[in-house]
Amino acid sequence: MKPAISIPTPFGPWRLSPVPLLVPALMVVALVLVGSPSTWVTLTLAGLAMGMMIFIMASGLTLVFGLMDVLNFGHGAFISLGAFIGVTIMTALSPWMDSLSLAANLGAIGLGALVAMVVAGGFGYLFERTIIRPVYGDHLKQILITMGGMIVVEQVIYVFWGPDAIPIPRPDSLKGAFAFGDVVLEKYRVLAVVVGLVIFAAMSLTLKRTKIGLLVRAGVENGEMVETLGYRIGALFIAVFVVGSALAGLGGVMWGLYQEVITAPMGMSVMILIFIVVIIGGLGSVEGCFLGALLVGLMNNYAAYLAPKVALGSSILLMVAILMWRPEGLLPAAKGR
């Protein structure tokens, strides 16, 4: 339980807690275990890139839960849909993708991502109105219905794009790596980290410095009170849902380019990591989600190097450990229950 009085400062009260130090702590432990600094830098970059992408996909889910107590198991559908739309656009722009100039490549990817976000956001709106709206306040039905929605979307993707995995090679300018002596930094991962940081910064600023952000945070804290004060939390919620879906679509495009292949069930398989992240972070908390995503991304890459067989198991162990320490997650923000 939260203390009755907590005074939110512009930076949030969590700055004082040891929680944010977990990420550097994990990095230091990994440095000792991995041994070679150049390998460690590569792994850390890979982990951060993966974490950023998971954060982009997970942030919408956690806010949606925090605001309206809606648990959307169909979130993965937006990820898959975004990836397929994005790839379709990029294939259509293949001259830009094939050209050697970085600007053309980024233009094609950017346009693909933009269309993917618009489509995923629009689809999110429809999904919320038709699938989720009738089951507000009933977790059991929410889980069942959104799971059903997920299955249907996955099958519809099969109908339109066929059952085979679609390979999506990265354009030339994003292949390969920057090398500084021993240290190898893969270009695409650097891009993913940059995009992730920009989105996190934009989201933090929106949440902390704007009226809408204030309302969203207040809604997570106590939705009824916000409504009592005359704000339409339902409309706010839809806006958050649409933005969250759009971000999931963006994350899908990025994840697809990262794996260099897209399949209809990819959303579902990423959802497993996303759930772990959201639980670790504390349902409803964006900062917690960010930290959780970085922890899971780093943990996955370090584990894949140190003990390849337990990569996914390591995230679950991490989740168990964190729940033992903080049963509500790292930085719980949602209502008591």
Binding site: F275, I279, M319
Partner: peptide, 16 residues
């Protein structure tokens, strides 16, 4: 902790 964690945790554990 929370009953709704159960759905997410079981999904993760089962896939692992």
């Amino acid at each position: 902790v929370r009953a709704i964690f159960f759905a997410m945790v079981t999904l993760a554990v089962a896939s692992a």
